[in-house]
Write a protein that binds this DNA or RNA. Structure first.
Lengths: 112, 112
DNA sequence: TCCAGTAGTATCCTTTTGTATACTATACCA
DNA sequence: TGGTATAGTATACAAAAGGATACTACTGGA
């Protein structure tokens, strides 16, 4: 039941979902299944191409998403969640739920 | 059921548990209830005083932990999880569980 | 002929995060 | 009288994350 603090693996999970963009990218891919690079870019306002590319590469290296290149010009590249990556969904939901609750809590205790 | 990606609150949860030290600090406090600054320092090898102080302040500002100062010399300061902070425990457990699974998965798919 | 669209890379910059080390005041103990 | 312990702060630095902007190759369409 208890996690022995110095044997904790929370960081391993965090490394994958952490950052300003990874959760949003994952939620978009979970929602839509497969998306092109430009779909993601359009769906996520403010993200720069550099950040989108970087985060996609990192998720790919962890086997969370897959990248498929169509050999054509202009280029077409599709990204999708792997079966394994789908296992992150409950975690993202739990975090989202807690986040909603926390936003509310913050409002309340800040004005007491 | 589905999170609308652009309304997602995952970041709100992440901001609180993210970083090299916060999960370990929280797990120690969840395990022991109350700890002095020096207890935490001793229990977390390699953390610097600056980082410990900084992270404790941030957790305090989010109402996750409480700080109690005994007016004596040499100083004595105790930290403990708030009731509200305890609600993070299931999330930490879920992340830990996923982290364990991921460490295993990594071993497997890297050698195929 | 010129422009838009694709999926990036390259370069430079700022901000955040983390490390290393030295320093503080005061009391107790030998 | 000098050392240890407590809970920090101050300073300087290194590394990582993120942002802004310009650039590429190639094609199809106006």
């Amino acid at each position: 039941m208890n996690i022995e603090p110095n044997l904790c693996r929370v960081e391993d999970a965090l490394e994958i979902i952490v950052g300003k963009w990874k959760p949003i990218i994952l939620l978009h891919l979970l929602k839509n299944g497969t998306m092109r690079f430009s779909d993601l870019k359009r769906s996520i306002p403010n993200i720069t191409q550099k950040m989108l590319t970087k985060n996609l590469r990192e998720l790919e290296n962890e086997d969370i998403i897959e990248r498929f290149v169509y050999p054509q010009v202009p280029p077409k590249v599709e990204y999708s969640i792997t079966e394994y990556g789908k296992e992150l969904e409950p975690l993202l939901h739990a975090m989202h739920k807690w986040g909603v609750k926390h936003a509310l809590h913050k409002q309340q205790y800040k004005f007491i």
